[in-house]
Design a protein around this nucleic acid. Structure first.
Lengths: 113, 113
DNA sequence: GAGTTGGTTAGTCATATTGCTAAGTATTGA
DNA sequence: TCAATACTTAGCAATATGACTAACCAACTC
């Protein structure tokens, strides 16, 4: 019953993994290149990559001894859609509140304290 | 060094908590009302609310014995900005790939197999 | 073919997360 | 005032997460 969104959000909850995703938006990169600059043992870093890959946010292919990691488009779209949906609801709510505030102001004008 | 985004993303990684956020986009609600429909002991559910509140995604106020929970706008904006930033980068990358593909098609036309 | 490079596997440890029950507090309503 | 309602706290158990080291394999490079 675990949603795809569960995996996307929890994958992105870690700063190391977000950094990897950010880096990958600029193009694919090898594991060791991605690891560079992260003060963390390689096996630990690899676990993060595995989490990203299992979530579907990235894919990877191995050629020779080099594994190259690529970002996936679809998940970003799904995340975006979720957020967009709630952005809309929020905006609608804001509108209602605005109208309410206006209505209250009017009624204040009609019938002050 | 934990980013605000860490908390937003990990708070939203749980389906129960996402459901609460979705519900709250329609307006504030009391704890017991929010709990309704979630097959989960109340203390467990309260823990989820606490996570949401500590992340800053929601706030709550207590009046009498009823605690009312409200959604916060700012975090959704921050999340949206992060995603938008990467949507842009991704789009840019897509554009580059598209141009590359076109270039390759052209060179194929010039010099087929 | 010996060493180096790039990644992988296995195993351990500490802490965090997510669920529970049991028991408590504080309002509110009869 | 007594009982019901609406949380709240405390404490426990199981699993997940994030870090490490040590040891390993596979593919280049000399």
């Amino acid at each position: 019953m675990t949603n795809q969104l569960d995996n996307f959000f929890s994958a992105l909850a870690d700063p190391t993994r977000r950094a990897v995703v950010e880096r990958l938006t600029q193009g694919p990169a090898a594991v060791s290149a991605l690891h560079d600059g992260h003060d963390m043992a390689l096996p630990t870093f690899l676990r993060h990559l595995k989490v990203l890959e299992e979530s579907g946010l990235v894919t990877s292919t191995k050629k020779g001894r080099v594994r190259t990691v690529h970002i996936e488009a679809a998940p970003l779209r799904i995340l975006d859609d979720w957020l967009a949906r709630h952005r809309d609801l929020w905006d609608a709510r804001l509108d209602r509140l605005t109208r309410l505030a206006e209505a209250m102001e009017e009624s204040d004008a009609d019938d002050p304290i």
